[in-house]
Computed example of a mutant assay.
Amino acid sequence: MTERAGAITFKGNPMTLVGDEITVGQKAPDFQLRANDFSVKSLADYAGKVKIISIIPSLDTPVCDAQTRHFNTDAASLGDGVVILTISVDLPPAQKRWCGAAGIDAVECLSDYYDHSFGSAYGVRVKELGLLARQIVVLDKDDTVKYVEVVPEIAQEPNYDAAIAAAKELL
């Protein structure tokens, strides 16, 4: 499996990403992630919708908290043709607890805790931390990658406006 040493940083320290980098124009890799009830979700569960995939290290950190809340608010302007998925390695019960406490109702949180296959397939598994890097991927209704932002420093927020604009262009 591909390893990209120094692809991102965490608090200024170089980190290695495991897996091939996702690029605009490619078909998105399918995934098997766990929902809050431990059911398995894949791309097929969101067929026919534009997908904003917000990838984060952990909901229980300030930047990930802010990112998920921001996309939850943005969801209202996007309508039913867009689904926003937040993916981390947090356990499903922790995601459920956090979403309930934060009032998150327009973003679906999914977990890659089970086998970390999503992180490797999307090239965002941080080797040194066992977490996912911060990345935004926008897929069209046919699961083609139309926008990617790999945030170079894990502790920084992504460009929300660019991701939302990319999703709106696909509606």
Rank of each mutant, 00 (worst) to 15 (best):
D30Y: 15
E108H: 11
A133L: 07
Y122P: 05
D115W: 03
K141C: 04
P29F: 14
A166D: 03
A106V: 03
D140Y: 00
V50M: 05
A101R: 11
K11G: 08
V137Y: 00
A165H: 06
T68E: 06
T23G: 03
E153M: 05
Y114R: 12
L43W: 02
A121G: 01
K41W: 00
V50K: 02
T23Q: 09
A101N: 13
Y122F: 10
V18I: 13
P158H: 06
D161A: 15
Q67N: 12
D142M: 01
R134M: 12
A167Q: 01
N36C: 01
F10D: 13
A7S: 10
V138W: 02
V82E: 10
N159W: 08
S54V: 11
T61N: 14
S88H: 06
P57K: 13
V151Q: 09
G100R: 00
A76K: 14
W98E: 12
I84R: 04
Y147E: 05
A47R: 15
D112F: 02
K27P: 13
A44Y: 01
Q67D: 12
A102L: 10
E153S: 05
Q156E: 10
M15L: 15
T61R: 13
S42G: 13
W98R: 08
H116G: 01
V50A: 05
L91T: 06
A35H: 05
Q32H: 14
L139K: 00
